[in-house]
């Protein structure tokens, strides 16, 4: 066989075998990976809605929001379709939770926010994922910082140096949390209340 042809064939065969193996592995693991992620998020919902004993997932499609522009629709969908509704042992809805995202100092900061059904005040927030500097930006995970958001409503500015005290040395991280909470809150409250 011609030498260059042989190179092409060997490399192509190796690549095809590799792709075949990987597609099988991906097929079996991706199901478990998604389940894990969903379960992890659901168990976090109980942290921000302490009285909940059951969590319902509400999906709202972009149609219901009255958004026509496809690009905006996609963004809206990514941001607000998933709302977690917390239900207590007497089958009463006690609140809802949503995920907010914003760019921090080292990457995306993802926050889960729990809101009281009756008062529309934030009950608790939880940092789901971040890549902030250990020791500085990572203090956004601390209870002392997270508690600064408790009791805020969608009417509040929820902004660093306005109604949220800053974290010294970690302004960008603190601002990212505030942005994520505010943006998610505004979007979700509109969908959640608007859809009823």
């Amino acid at each position: 066989m011609n030498e260059s042809l042989r190179m092409v064939v060997v490399l192509a065969v190796i690549a095809m075998v590799s792709a075949g193996i990987l597609s099988v592995v991906y097929g079996t693991t991706s199901v478990i990976i998604e389940e894990n992620a969903a379960r992890a998020l659901e168990s976090s919902v109980y942290d921000v809605l302490p009285q909940a004993t059951k969590v319902d997932i509400i999906r709202r499609s972009a149609d219901e929001l009255g958004v026509d522009d496809p690009k905006e629709m996609r963004e809206q969908e990514q941001r607000t379709t998933l709302i977690y509704q917390g239900i207590n042992d007497q089958d009463q809805v006690i609140g809802y939770a949503f995920v907010g995202e914003a760019n921090g100092y080292g990457g995306v900061v993802r926050i889960l926010v729990g809101v009281d059904e009756a008062t529309d005040e934030i009950l608790n927030i939880k940092v789901l994922a971040h890549t902030e500097t250990p020791g500085l930006g990572s203090r956004i995970e601390d209870e002392s910082f997270r508690s600064r958001f408790v009791g805020k409503t969608v009417e509040d500015p929820i902004a660093v140096n306005q109604d949220i005290d800053n974290l010294s040395g970690a302004t960008i991280s603190a601002r990212a949390v505030a942005d994520a909470v505010r943006q998610g809150f505004v979007d979700t409250a509109a969908v959640y209340r608007g859809g009823e």
Binding site: E3, R6, M7, V10, L11, I14, A15, S18, I21, L22, V25, Y26, T28, T29, S30, I32, I33, N36, A37, A40
Partner: peptide, 30 residues
């Protein structure tokens, strides 16, 4: 494996095993 394309061939083999480790770890040791 022909000598001239050995590096890309090695990298494909290595990358395949690394991806398997990555996926399996993600699924079973999150």
């Amino acid at each position: 494996i022909p000598d001239k394309v050995r590096i890309p061939a090695y990298i494909i083999v290595i990358a395949t095993f690394v991806t398997i480790v990555d996926l399996v770890m993600h699924a079973y040791l999150p």
